[in-house]
Amino acid sequence: MDPAFVIGVILAFGALVAMITMEGASFTALIIPAPMILVIGSTIGVGIASHTWRDTIVAARSLGRMVRGPRLTPEAVIPFLVGYAEKARGEGLLSLEQETDGAPDDFTRQALQALADGVDAEDLRTMMDDEMAAVSSRNRVAARFFSSLGGYAPTIGIVGTVVSLTHVLEKLDEPDHLGPMIAAAFVATLWGLLSANFIWNPISGRLSRVGAIELERMTLVSEGMLAIQAGSAPHLLQERLTALSGVAPKTKKKKDQPAEEGA
């Protein structure tokens, strides 16, 4: 599990709590159920209304993946692919069927099975490209859903503030209560901005990043499988995939270097 999201949210709310404490403000003045229910409930409701029900389900299901983070980094699949290349060169593509149970993910498993079944290069590329397009589409839908919530929340907070101020104007004959009532009216705006920038937008950004990492991994698997089918040498495949993944290769230390004169 990647703890970045949890750590980030805790730090954000922790900084808010620290500010409230240092300012000597009251937590009870900021945690008022009515505006919180309006902002959070209406934001989710409007978000659902602006998307299809399928989009909502996709977004809800993505929350676990968002918190968990990518299960496998792109560079982590390179040793698997190099091992498959070695096995294919030694025993043939049909032998890769034995590796399907130990594949690191479903995408790799499907590609291995296709290689073992003798699918030609064009059909294999089409199959993998279609799967990558489907995954990319799901990731975009989920990220856009929460991004839209981040856009709606501040405006809905203002709506809550306007409603509360309308109630304040009805109580002008009670000047002793105007101060607390006006302060409470702005809590809706606070929670609109807070939920947008502390919850919805970070979720959207996190989903976009996790989706990008997932596509990078799938791209490496796709290129690796096509190279294996073409009979690429394992060491050449490793160099190519390492370059594609952006991982800097480890440089070997030079031995027996002559000492500099005058040292």
Rank of each mutant, 00 (worst) to 15 (best):
A4I: 10
F5E: 01
V6K: 05
T28G: 14
P35V: 06
L38A: 10
V39Y: 02
G41F: 04
G41I: 03
S42W: 07
I48R: 08
A49S: 13
S50M: 14
W53D: 08
R54C: 02
A59E: 03
R61T: 12
M66P: 02
V67Y: 13
P70E: 13
R71T: 10
E75Y: 00
E75M: 02
A85D: 03
K87P: 00
R89F: 01
G90Y: 07
G90I: 03
G92S: 04
D101R: 12
A103D: 05
D106Y: 10
D123C: 01
R125W: 01
T126Q: 11
M127S: 14
M128L: 14
M128E: 07
D129C: 01
E131P: 00
A133H: 12
A134F: 06
V135S: 10
F145G: 03
S148Q: 08
I156M: 11
V162R: 11
L165N: 06
L172C: 02
D176A: 15
I182D: 05
I182H: 12
A183P: 06
A185H: 14
F186Q: 05
F186V: 13
L190P: 01
L193A: 13
I203Q: 01
R209T: 09
I213E: 14
E214C: 04
R217S: 10
R217C: 09
S222H: 10
M225W: 04
A230I: 02
S232K: 15
H235L: 12
L236P: 00
L237A: 10
L237R: 05
Q238I: 01
Q238R: 15
A243F: 07
L244G: 00
P249H: 08
T251N: 11
K253W: 05
E261I: 09
